[in-house]
């Protein structure tokens, strides 16, 4: 698994990150009040078109959402059993629309753009002298950057243990994961220091 961001030059890539995040938040709020499946279908169609405009292929889309797809299916099945087919469909459409809308933002917004948003949001706190916004924004950017790396690291450790005939035990996974993460954090901090 790599970064969710997809470099590109679409009009969505050029929109300010803050605007995209604001619209996503508004869409999320609005969808909670919509129960008509036809309106939800319309929203899904609009969001799918936006996603297509970012240049994301179907294969790349599937690689980014497949983990959540099975979770969504389970949720819909549960809703079908305890409520009704109508509720299950509305839930599926609503969550899929939100998921794809979040993906539109993730795919078209670089970490630098997100850091700019964090800097802007934290400005009032900096004026009060409570936080160093540059440091917080860098920590935020690094966290986003390292999430996919941690996933790869987990996969590497699992593979190495499987090669030794060990089953997937959370404890035996957690220890090397923690040690490697700490060492990696120290090395990255050193490299950032060296860059001035």
């Amino acid at each position: 698994m790599g970064s969710l961001f997809l470099p590109g030059d679409s009009w969505l890539h050029r929109l300010p990150g803050g605007l995209k995040l604001g619209l996503l938040a508004m869409l999320g709020g609005a969808l909670m009040w919509v129960h008509d499946w036809r309106l939800l279908m319309l929203a899904l169609a609009v969001v799918s078109t936006l996603l297509w405009q970012t240049g994301l292929s179907v294969a790349m889309l599937w690689s980014r959402v497949r983990g959540l797809f099975w979770l969504l299916l389970a949720l819909m099945l549960y809703t079908l059993v305890v409520q009704s087919a109508e509720h299950a469909i509305a839930l599926g459409l609503r969550v899929t629309t939100l998921l794809l809308a979040a993906l539109v933002v993730s795919v078209s917004t670089s970490i630098s753009q997100l850091m700019t948003v964090v800097l802007w949001l934290l400005q009032p706190l900096e004026r009060l002298g409570w936080v160093d916004t540059q440091r917080v924004a860098l920590a935020f950017g690094l966290t986003l950057r390292l999430i996919p790396e941690l996933s790869l690291q987990w996969h590497d450790i699992r593979e190495a243990q499987a090669a030794r005939g060990l089953s997937a035990n959370p404890l035996t996974m957690a220890v090397p994961m923690l040690l490697r993460t700490i060492r990696r954090a120290q090395e990255i901090a050193e490299a950032i220091d060296a860059r001035g």
Binding site: S3, F5, S110, L142, E187, A191, R195, G196
Partner: peptide, 26 residues
């Protein structure tokens, strides 16, 4: 540090951002 450019053994630790141009810009 502004005078010395340090190239580390493992580039993964040195490259902070996910896109090449973004990292150099940083």
């Amino acid at each position: 540090r502004s005078k010395i450019g340090f190239v580390f053994q493992n580039p993964d630790n040195q490259i902070v951002f996910p896109v090449v141009s973004e990292d150099i810009d940083f």
